[in-house]
């Protein structure tokens, strides 16, 4: 009896454990760690997003692994964890960005958008019968005043702002790499370099460009731009990050 009562704490999402934890939310964080890594780097010249993806077979179309999404002209989102859950939040972001343009005639700030998304995520940690989102998002962009911003959302619905951050599998290794080398980052290219280095730290034996994606939002243009896979391959090759096999 005692045992079955205790087990209930991790079944009902809306139930606190006696020591004040929400197990379902913590399990959702574990789900994020099971995925491949996504990295964001804020530089004075813009924001960089990069992600590693996993191809199940050589027959899978690489482009169908979507880890980085354009949310609006000035906004990009990198995702880690359950891709299907993330897609829902990406679509919410796109709609929210358009609502802002309709309502205020302005592009939505990265912080405002992030908080709209995290408020939505939070609802799913307090609603009976619901399940938390098993994904983390990195929301990067350039505000109307020209400031580059980078935020993380986690399954609890808490927003965090970062200079550089990694989420997903082997997050710790990637974050160590970011912490060690962030001070040297000045340009968008530096940011890309650091992002790839951080991703390489999560992958044994180097990276393969096939599953990877990267995007930048430079301050100068304020526009989301994805990198071609060949550009990613060149970057990796120049810096010896390619998988040797």
């Amino acid at each position: 009896m005692q045992n079955s009562q205790q087990q209930a704490y991790d079944r009902g999402i809306t139930i606190f454990s006696p020591d004040g934890r929400l197990y379902q939310v913590e399990y959702a964080r574990e789900a994020v760690k099971r995925g491949t890594a996504a990295v964001g780097v804020r530089t004075p010249e813009g924001v960089v997003l990069a992600a590693d993806g996993r191809l199940r077979s050589s027959l899978q179309v690489a482009e169908s692994v979507e880890k980085i999404h354009k949310a609006d002209e000035h906004l990009g989102i990198a995702t880690a964890g359950h891709a299907a859950d993330a897609r829902q939040l990406v679509d919410l972001s796109r709609r929210r960005a358009q609502v802002e343009r309709l309502r205020y005639g302005e592009a939505v700030d990265v912080e405002t958008l992030t908080k709209a998304i995290t408020d939505n995520i939070q609802e799913f940690t307090q609603t009976g019968g619901a399940r938390p989102f098993g994904c983390a998002l990195l929301i990067g962009g350039v505000d109307e005043d020209g400031s580059p911003r980078l935020f993380e959302t986690d399954p609890s619905g808490t927003p965090y702002e970062w200079k550089a951050v990694a989420v997903g599998g082997n997050q710790r290794e990637a974050q160590d790499e970011l912490e060690a080398n962030y001070p040297e980052v000045e340009t968008v290219d530096d940011g890309l370099q650091l992002a790839f280095d951080a991703l390489a730290a999560t992958a044994d034996g180097g990276l393969t460009p096939e599953g990877m994606s990267a995007a930048t939002i430079p301050v100068e243009t304020g526009s989301f731009e994805t990198l071609e896979r060949s550009e990613i391959a060149d970057h990796l090759d120049e810096n010896g990050l390619l998988d040797e096999e």
Binding site: R103, Y104, G105, E106, T112
Partner: peptide, 15 residues
């Protein structure tokens, strides 16, 4: 209060 900055005139006039 939500954004810690004032509405621009573009935003105010749109609303």
């Amino acid at each position: 209060t939500r954004r810690d900055r004032r509405m621009s005139m573009e935003a105010l006039s749109s609303v």
